[in-house]
Amino acid sequence: MTFLPVWEFPINQESKQFWDAAAQNVLLLPRCSDCGFTIFYPRSICPECRSRNLSWIQMSGKGEVYSYTVTRRTSGRFRSHVPFVIAYVQLDEGPRMLTNVVDCDPNNVSIGMRVEVMFESQDEGKAIPRFKPSQ
């Protein structure tokens, strides 16, 4: 349990499958069936070859920290949740995604650290993909 704030966030026809899968604790990303490129963030066109021939692929949910920062002062919704970690996690399948690293002491996070996805369940059946240190 991480207790980072969330709020009503928009889901549209391009991202619905991502969020539906997240609610089932599955990390899905689109992969181009023509050029093989795995895409983050999800969209309906391949930014590599402009194909619309995309498939939703289940990610392993494993990866490593590409970069991170411990936010210690901020404003808005996260103000009372410091310190917390924002990171780019490079998935084993390739893409780097923005996320939080949770369930650990922020001071113990490092670049190259192995992490795995976890889903923080929200109201209305939504879940947010964040990452925690691999066991």
Binding site: F9, L98, T99, R130
Partner: peptide
């Protein structure tokens, strides 16, 4: 928007 704003 949703893939960047959620993480603070």
């Amino acid at each position: 928007q949703s893939f960047e704003s959620l993480f603070g």
